[in-house]
Amino acid sequence: MTLASMTGFSREEGTLDNIRWTWELRSVNGKGLDMRLRIPQGYDALEATVRGLASKRLKRGNVSINLQVQREQNTTTLAVNEQALEQVLQALAVLQRRLPDAAAPNLDGILAHKGVLELQEAEETEDQKAAILKALEDSFKIALDNLVVMREREGESLNELLSGQAAEILRLTEEAEGLPSRQADAIKERIAAQVAQLMEANNTLEPQRLHQEAVLLATKADIREELDRLYAHVNALRDLISTGGAVGRRMDFLAQEFNREANTLCSKSNSVELTAIGLQLKTVIDQMREQIQNVE
Rank of each mutant, 00 (worst) to 15 (best):
N203V: 01
T204F: 00
E206A: 15
E206P: 05
P207W: 01
P207F: 01
P207L: 08
H211M: 14
H211K: 11
Q212S: 12
E213G: 10
A214N: 02
A214D: 06
A214P: 01
V215W: 10
V215K: 08
V215P: 04
V215D: 09
V215M: 13
L216G: 13
L216E: 10
L216H: 12
L217M: 14
L217G: 05
A218I: 09
A218N: 10
A221D: 04
A221V: 06
D222C: 07
D222V: 09
I223W: 02
R224P: 00
R224G: 14
L227I: 15
L227M: 14
D228Y: 01
R229N: 12
L230T: 05
L230G: 04
L230W: 05
L230P: 04
Y231L: 13
Y231E: 14
Y231I: 11
A232L: 07
A232H: 10
A232I: 07
A232N: 13
H233V: 06
H233W: 08
V234R: 07
A236K: 13
A236I: 02
L237G: 03
D239M: 14
D239K: 15
D239C: 08
I241W: 07
I241K: 07
I241A: 10
I241N: 09
S242W: 00
T243E: 15
T243P: 04
G245T: 11
G245A: 12
A246P: 13
V247F: 06
V247G: 03
V247H: 06
R250F: 00
R250V: 00
R250H: 12
R250D: 13
M251G: 13
M251S: 02
M251W: 04
D252S: 11
F253M: 12
F253G: 11
L254T: 02
Q256D: 06
Q256A: 02
F258T: 06
N259C: 00
N259F: 12
R260N: 00
E261C: 03
E261I: 00
E261Q: 07
E261N: 02
E261F: 00
A262T: 03
N263F: 04
N263A: 10
T264V: 02
T264P: 02
L265P: 03
L265C: 01
S267G: 01
S267E: 02
S267I: 00
S267Y: 01
K268P: 07
K268E: 03
K268V: 03
S269Q: 02
N270D: 10
S271K: 07
L274H: 06
T275S: 14
T275Q: 14
A276T: 12
I277N: 11
I277P: 03
G278Q: 05
L279N: 13
L279S: 11
Q280I: 00
L281D: 05
L281C: 05
K282M: 08
K282W: 10
T283S: 14
V284Y: 07
D286Y: 02
D286F: 01
D286E: 15
Q287E: 14
M288E: 04
M288D: 01
R289C: 02
E290L: 05
Q291I: 06
Q293V: 05
N294V: 07
N294P: 04
